[in-house]
Design a protein around this nucleic acid. Structure first.
Lengths: 138, 138
DNA sequence: TTCTCTGCAAATCGTTTGCAGTAAA
DNA sequence: TTTACTGCAAACGATTTGCAGAGAA
């Protein structure tokens, strides 16, 4: 995710408006390493905007995703999680606590960081998801 | 997925019963390379058992998954797909036709076939999903 | 007979949408 | 003023569950 000023600029360029709710969502996501769900984000923004609706959070996340500012992860079969780090990296999902940890190429020897070439398929994105148990849950 | 006799044996050993419905589902999955959804399987079994319910299909898939006979894929954010091939391989998911193609290690140079070691995480499975557009949809 | 499975119907839950009032530009 | 956004309430759709009758062992 770009810095807030850049995100704001991109919204304006696209003819979209900047609202206090959106600014709070941007701020919450910025540098967030927790891979929150829409519900997580909603509950956190509630502290700042007690009357914000889930719908607003949901639609803002959709927009950010469509702009490529954040990634929507499908690692957790029960719900989507969001990641403001759109650089090449992978995820370790703990079945027990449903936590998601970042894995950077190099940390796992057997996965390189190059976008692969596939015969007869135009690859737009790659998701590598390790599922298992984190240290705390073992 | 093991051959049908072995699957039947495993069910019996676990105190579970073998029904005509289950046998048809086993047969449909065996060597199936289509990565069907539960709904797909349900519609196919309907031809053989016109009164089978979705619930029965659903519960059988759960059981097969829990036994490790099939994998439940979360490549498609809209629904689960099932794969009787539980050997190490990856998937290419086409956003347009929602089709899933198998990718075997070696076909994609940048992903090896070894189960990786991650510091402080017990890896139980790895899902590598390439999302994009297949040849037919391009 | 015993115990699991089947099929129905309903509940669940994350996600998505329509719309009227609100607020940004 | 114009146009997009917010929040509500309801729809949606895949998934999951409770339960009574059916069927496998």
């Amino acid at each position: 995710m770009n810095d807030i000023d850049t995100v704001v600029e991109r919204f304006r360029e696209a003819g979209m408006k900047i609202t206090p709710q959106r600014l709070s969502i941007f701020a919450l996501l910025m540098d967030n390493k927790d891979h929150p769900s829409a519900e997580n984000i909603y509950h956190q923004v509630l502290e700042i905007h007690p009357s914000i609706s889930f719908t607003t959070v949901y639609k803002t996340l959709q927009t950010l995703r469509d702009l490529g500012e954040i990634n929507e992860l499908s690692v957790d079969p029960e719900r989507a999680h969001y990641d403001p780090d759109v650089s090449e990296h992978y995820h370790a999902f703990c079945r027990s606590c449903r936590g998601i940890r970042d894995i950077f190429p190099g940390e796992s020897s057997s996965f390189s960081s190059e976008l692969p070439e596939l015969e007869g398929f135009r690859v737009q994105s790659v998701q590598v998801a390790f599922t298992g148990q984190c240290e705390e849950c073992s």
